[in-house]
Design a binder for these strands. Structure first.
Lengths: 156, 156
DNA sequence: TATTGTTATACTCTATAACTATA
DNA sequence: TATAGTTATAGAGTATAACAATA
């Protein structure tokens, strides 16, 4: 029987899952931001909102919030910037005039169409490095870990 | 044969690997920060520096930088805060008086010993949800993806 | 009273460059 | 001239609360 190492033996960050995950997410995020941010001057939030709208436009702001997992302040600011860039319009929702209907303009859709193949190709490059079984396991693992980490975060 | 979906069909963020990874990393990071930040008032950088020093103290600042993958500015600031909290000392390195030797004080080590089992236990809770094969695949996948994403980020 | 979205505020992080002192 | 580490600065992102308009 081997004993667990004493808790003050030094905690190898390299072997600590949350640390490894943070490094990976940061590197992946940077490699994607090179496309939407550096080449097309979109913030991460603007990019997410654009992707959400490309699927359903017009959309109520609440739907954008739900589909991007951003909060209402971030979405409101991202949309304001996108409106000023001529990517979307924001009209009052006739069904509930507290809300707004966000419409992707042709310039917004065109921008989206330019970006998608580039980020998809980067995504493909990343995942090509994995065996099919590894990739399936990764996918399943992400879902399970997400659930569990949210459970931890909720219970404090 | 099925065709790939047209690139403007809407890009389901939920199925986009970088997005899923970002959500996961954020949730995991928050669940860990609840320990070191909320309960023990350490920033993420301070926590990383503490972990690095617990393994090797005294250490030259350059070594801390290397072991935490933080930049020298972040490390310098984290160490300044840690010194003011009485967790470390920073003496001039007698071998090269441009550099400093960072020494973990008893209070720093005691703090580290309190935190480690708590974050380890959260890490274990997260990973318990995975099959052993899934976990091995996840581990391998993280390494491969990290390499590839850094390659992308480097080439721009 | 509650909800939608906007604005305000303060705070933290990040990136970069400039600087001091040593080598 | 180069390196170790610090300080300065500006910009971006984050969290929270307060607010106006509407339901």
């Amino acid at each position: 029987m081997t004993r667990p190492p004493p808790s003050d033996a030094g905690m190898e960050l390299d072997g600590f899952f949350p640390y490894r995950l943070a490094l990976l997410a940061d590197a992946v995020s940077r490699s994607m931001a090179q496309i939407y941010a550096e080449r097309f001057d979109l913030s991460r939030d603007e990019w997410r909102v654009l992707a959400a709208l490309a699927g359903t436009s017009p959309a109520r702001t609440a739907m954008v919030i739900e589909r991007t997992t951003l909060d209402k302040v971030s979405v409101s600011r991202a949309l304001a910037r996108m409106e000023s860039k001529g990517l979307v319009t924001r009209d009052t929702d006739p069904q509930d005039s507290r809300g707004r209907l966000i419409r992707l303009l042709p310039a917004g859709r065109a921008l989206f169409r330019k970006i998608v193949p580039m980020v998809r190709s980067r995504e493909a490059f990343l995942l090509e490095g994995l065996e099919p079984a590894e990739r399936a396991a990764l996918d399943a693992a992400i879902d399970k870990l997400l659930q569990r980490s949210r459970q931890l975060a909720r219970q404090g």
